[in-house]
């Protein structure tokens, strides 16, 4: 536990020193909110976006660079298990996303006077699932694509269309029918639905179940394919 805490603390500190992560997980969603004039209805989508940026935008490149630069190899000679390292990465990405999200929600309500989220507990749970799912998908990308640049690039290529087609960046109602259909099959779509439900205070158990299923499947796939070297 001491080892895990130390690893997670170090990873969080590193994340807080990364200007790109800070910008995309904290400043960027706030900017979008300002552009939307504090429209509370857009916020659940932005929360999904924050999770996607951390898990799929940042995590694959980070993991691949740890592998390529033999950081993982050095850690493998210590008593910590490699699983612990992945766990610390996950916890720090989720925690950073949660902090960015909390700030966004507080600003939405306190500064723009939007209605407070209907079910804060459910919203938190939905965000956690959404963030863990994005990290699990990022883990699969880092397992399949071996070099750092490739993993970052593929992470972005998966993340951006997903953000636009799942309703995270723009409401799906605004999309043409064919694009909307693609969105039906993207894992971020149930995430947006779950967050949206919790935001308005209606229970949406089905999307949450789907998210949990994706987490299990992606983690199993990643674990089967991931190589430490």
């Amino acid at each position: 536990m001491k080892a895990f805490t130390a690893l997670t603390a170090a990873e969080l500190r590193l994340l807080s020193r990364d200007p790109a992560s800070l910008f995309f997980m904290v400043a960027f969603p706030l900017m979008l909110l300002v552009l939307k004039r504090g429209d509370g209805g857009a916020v659940p989508g932005y929360l999904a976006m924050i999770a996607a940026i951390g898990g799929m935008g940042a995590l694959p490149g980070l993991l691949a660079s740890y592998r390529e630069r033999k950081v993982l190899k050095r850690l493998a000679t210590t008593p910590i298990s490699p699983i612990l390292l992945l766990g610390a990465q996950l916890v720090s990405q989720v925690a950073a996303g949660l902090a960015g999200s909390a700030l966004l929600v507080v600003v939405t309500v306190a500064v723009f006077g939007a209605r407070a989220p209907g079910d804060v507990l459910m919203l938190t749970a939905a965000f956690l699932l959404c963030s863990v799912m994005a990290c699990a998908l990022g883990f699969v990308i880092a397992a399949v694509v071996r070099n750092t640049r490739g993993a970052s690039l593929i992470g972005m290529l998966v993340m951006f269309p997903m953000i636009f087609l799942s309703g995270a960046a723009v409401p799906r109602k605004a999309l043409p029918g064919s694009l909307r259909q693609i969105g039906d099959f993207l894992p971020l779509t149930p995430a947006v639905e779950a967050l949206g439900g919790a935001w308005s205070g209606t229970a949406v158990p089905f999307p949450l179940l789907i998210l949990a299923g994706i987490i299990v499947a992606a983690t199993a796939t990643g674990a089967a394919l991931f190589r430490w070297e």
């Binding site: 170090a10 590193l14 033999k70 190899k73 210590t78 008593p79």
Partner: peptide
Amino acid sequence: AHRLGVQLQDSSLPER
């Protein structure tokens, strides 16, 4: 690993 100290020929740490 608890009883061993290791310096590898080729390894590194996170940049920051």
